[in-house]
Simulated scan of single mutants.
Amino acid sequence: MFHPGEVDVQQRADVHADAHGSAGVGDTIPDVAREFLAGQRMIVVSAEHRGSPWTTLLAGEPGFIAVPDESTLHIDAGLPELDPLAGAFTVPTEIGMLAIETETRRRMRINGRAHQADGGLSVRAHQVYSNCPKYIQTRRGDSVGRSGPTTRTEGSSLNDAQLAWVREADTFFVGTSAPGLGADASHRGGSPGFLDAEPHRVSWPDYLGNSMYMTFGNLLLDPRASLLFIDWTAGRTLHLSGTAAVDWDRDRAARRPGAQRFVDFDIDHVVQLDNRLALRWRLEKPSRFNPPARGT
């Protein structure tokens, strides 16, 4: 069955999606998914730690994600101690995960419960499903050597450099959850400049998707959320924790090309990790589905 938040959002959006949402996902990992996961270099993860939601990522060489059985993943990578989710999985914890292959624009979401095991994470899958590749930019990734240790800066608002980072982004990830219904990690993309950013708030247009409304359904039940921005060329990450709300104002949406509605994210905590990743990506081409960032 759809969870209550998804039902309410579908009704508000006048969508009748019998085959979508939580009713249309499985709880096992098929062979095609096993093969896909084995080739990945990163996986985005979302969970709660010390009362706040956070989204981050785990990375490694292809093969670092293994599927020992149809309901279990083992991720052979740990989080650095400066990461906002470091220490979150000492006990079984709800987790949302998104494996995304930017070279082919394929992605897969796996939600379940995770705990530390053998230097990495063991995840029991509860929801397994693929998404369409809309709004994913094609990027080619390469492994590089680290230039030094990871460093952390934090605050309660975005500084000028971080504001520029967010305003120029073409991709970010959002984490949400709902009480008793699990966590979720999702992708958002668009043309550079599609996000609005102020020191205490980030906003973005919601474009036409696959009508699953898992993110919106979770937000209706629990407004806490988290955002992750990756600096694809420098290996930095920017993590935001706060609360989000959907703005259904049609007049506001009409002023932005492609927007069906807006999402406003109010910032509580900011963590920036420099030299976080030993991976770099080069942009090959943006998604052909991206609307213009602004109207004329």
Rank of each mutant, 00 (worst) to 15 (best):
V15F: 10
H200L: 15
V91P: 14
P179C: 13
D27M: 14
F216P: 00
N218H: 09
G87N: 12
Q127S: 04
P179Y: 11
Y207F: 15
I43D: 00
T215E: 00
Q10T: 00
A293C: 12
I29E: 05
L37K: 01
L58P: 13
M97Y: 00
D160Q: 12
L273C: 11
A197L: 11
G5D: 01
A245I: 13
E81W: 12
A225S: 11
T55Q: 02
F262G: 05
D14E: 10
R288E: 06
R236A: 14
T153R: 12
F36R: 03
P292C: 05
G60N: 06
T102C: 06
D231I: 08
V166Q: 05
N131Q: 04
A161T: 11
V144L: 13
D170V: 06
T215L: 00
E101L: 05
Q40R: 08
A114P: 05
S143L: 15
N275V: 13
A77Y: 08
P4V: 07
A99K: 04
R188V: 07
F262K: 02
A117G: 07
D83G: 11
D184H: 00
W232D: 05
P179K: 05
R124D: 07
Q11G: 09
S147Y: 01
A183P: 00
P205Q: 06
P286T: 03
P53H: 08
V44S: 02
N131C: 06
L227I: 15
F173L: 06
G112R: 02
S130E: 01
K134S: 06
D184N: 04
R201A: 14
R109H: 09
A38D: 01
T171M: 14
A19M: 13
W232I: 09
G145I: 08
F173C: 01
P179E: 07
V45R: 00
A66F: 11
